[in-house]
Design a protein around this nucleic acid. Structure first.
Length: 482
RNA sequence: UCCUUAGUAGCUCAGUUGGUUAGAGCGGCGGACUGUUAAUCCGUAGGUCGUAGGUUCAAGUCCUACCUGAGGAGCCA
């Protein structure tokens, strides 16, 4: 086969200098045709679109053409032609064909037909080869890039916080233990408990559930920082919006209060949405059509807003900001509450908000994203700044339609004595956390930050409904395949 | 973890009050067709009905347990 440098399909589709010789490599999606002409739809992952390869069967060995099956990887040399068909502008008339990797159609699970997302989840190692998961992968990359772009433009410093941590009081759920001890021969202390002095780090260690505490340390020197790393929660959560391993973005700003925090969160989310709209048009359009197809049997009122329209709407409208106390008042006075439509009735201050309440506020009452602030101290973490009322803390949750809590954050308690008092109140061992308390001991300053669940952002951007479909290899209870 | 629901061909599903030999569409394979777009048309192969027990003359269908998926709840990002 004559050597011609490979051109990616995304590039080929923009070319207009017909007649030139090109080489393309990719995976076959479909093959159809007759004795006179064959059409091959080729995809190389560079974009959602396939390239049409035209093959004149009499010019090639019959056995070679037989090996061009769905899933096979193939290299084509050929001329760039203006397409006669209506589905595409350009196509390649093949002059040379090389099969790079055969694909046994009897064993290859992907067929040239629609597959359910549940089935594709079982073959997650191959699902990138579908339009849907290819689109999601490209959008995910665009969003990763946009996160770094946003913070870089604003002068934030990226901090790599530890993945293995010895603190067990980050207040964010069950942790995975990290150890090199032999489970069949555990070293014990005199009183029969496990002797962690003999473990790798000489103490009990876990996978991180949040980079926030270390992020605060960095912010108290660098000013504005952000983390973007893997996060692990050993909760037995089986829902469409929880993962045991997920990616979280946690900015932390010195000299910033809760209003600055809310401003940053809103600006950040809108920037990400804008970048998706600008850079991922084709993929979003594909996902939008996929969603429409999926919902076509639903009743009008049950259908979700068209994907791109939804992104534009959130981008161009201010988020509603209100306090927990105001939210409770709205919920308490709502017809829903009075007619007993909530499973959990709202009676007044102190009620924890359930999913149904958050959803009511976002999807029914305001019909746009809502930032709830100033929750009762009893239902929030120890490090959140206590308000003067001594009852509420400067917490904020950003609530999105369908997804619920996409961001959780707060202004931090910067006063040493108040922080220690809160830790004692909530049973957090402050003597193990002197490193954290030192920031309040030496040159303390007000500061604020939040955590954005990256996969929850991906749910919103892609319109997918299960979080297991927006991360390549989902880790959930009883599932760590691939 | 709890509640609800489902598991039948490679995939998506139908299968009536328990009753003879378990069906369809798509996909595969074979054939037809001079430009197709998830091509079309004709033909064809393909099944331990999630697993293990139980009830019954008889179980895909009823009962029990377990496994797995989905939706919802809690926890949260």
């Amino acid at each position: 086969m004559k050597h011609i440098g490979r051109t990616k399909i995304v590039q080929i589709l923009t070319l207009t200098d017909f007649g030139i010789e090109v080489n393309v490599k990719g995976w076959v999606r479909t093959k159809r045709g007759n004795k006179q002409v064959l059409f091959i739809a080729l995809n190389d992952g560079s974009c959602i679109h396939n390239l049409q390869i035209v093959v004149e069967p009499d010019k090639f060995d019959e056995h070679l053409l037989k090996r061009i099956t769905t899933g096979a990887s193939v290299s084509f040399n050929g001329t760039l032609n203006k397409s006669n068909g209506s589905g595409q502008a350009v196509e390649i008339l093949a002059s040379e064909i090389e099969i790079l990797g055969d694909c046994d159609v009897d064993k290859y699970p992907l067929q040239p037909k629609r597959h359910s997302l549940e089935f594709l989840r079982e073959i997650a190692h191959l699902r990138y080869r579908t339009n849907t998961f290819g689109a999601i992968a490209r959008i995910r990359h665009a969003m990763v890039f946009a996160v770094h772009q946003f913070f870089t433009q604003k002068g934030f410093v990226n901090i790599h916080t530890p993945i293995i941590t010895s603190s067990d009081c980050e207040g964010a759920g069950e942790m995975f233990h990290v150890t090199t001890l032999d489970f069949n021969n555990l070293p014990l202390t005199e009183d029969g408990t496990i002797n962690y002095n003999e473990d790798f780090f000489g103490k009990q260690t876990n996978l991180t559930v949040s980079g926030q505490l270390e992020g605060e340390l960095a912010a108290m020197a660098m000013g504005d920082i952000y983390t973007f790393g893997p996060t692990f929660r050993a909760e037995n959560s089986n829902t469409s919006r929880h993962l045991a391993e997920f990616w979280m973005i946690e900015p932390e700003m010195a000299f910033a209060d809760l209003n600055d925090n809310m401003d940053l969160a809103e600006e950040f989310l809108k920037f990400l949405i804008k970048q998706a709209l600008i850079g991922c048009e084709d993929d979003l359009l594909f996902l939008s059509n996929r969603l429409k197809e999926e919902e076509k049997d639903k009743k009008e009122e049950e259908r979700s807003m068209e994907l791109i329209e939804k992104l534009k709407f959130v981008h161009s409208n201010d988020f509603v900001r209100l306090t927990y106390t105001e939210a409770i008042a709205i919920l308490k006075d709502s017809k829903y509450n009075k007619n007993g439509k909530f499973k959990y009735n709202i009676t007044g201050f102190g009620n924890d908000l359930q999913s149904e309440h958050e959803r009511f506020l976002v999807e029914k009452h305001f019909k746009k994203p809502v930032i709830l602030t100033d929750y009762p101290k009893g239902i929030k973490s120890f490090y959140m700044k206590l308000n003067d009322d001594n009852e509420t803390v400067r917490a904020m949750d950003v609530l999105f339609p369908q997804i619920g809590e996409i961001i959780g954050g707060s202004q931090r308690e910067e006063n040493y004595d108040k922080l220690v008092a809160r830790m004692n109140e909530m049973g957090i061992p402050s003597h193990d956390m002197q490193w954290y308390l030192d920031t309040r001991r030496f040159g303390t300053a007000i500061h604020s930050g939040f955590g954005l669940g990256f996969e929850r952002l991906m749910l919103f951007i892609t319109g997918m409904s299960n979080i297991r479909d927006v991360i390549p290899f989902p880790r959930t209870p009883k599932n760590a395949a691939f």
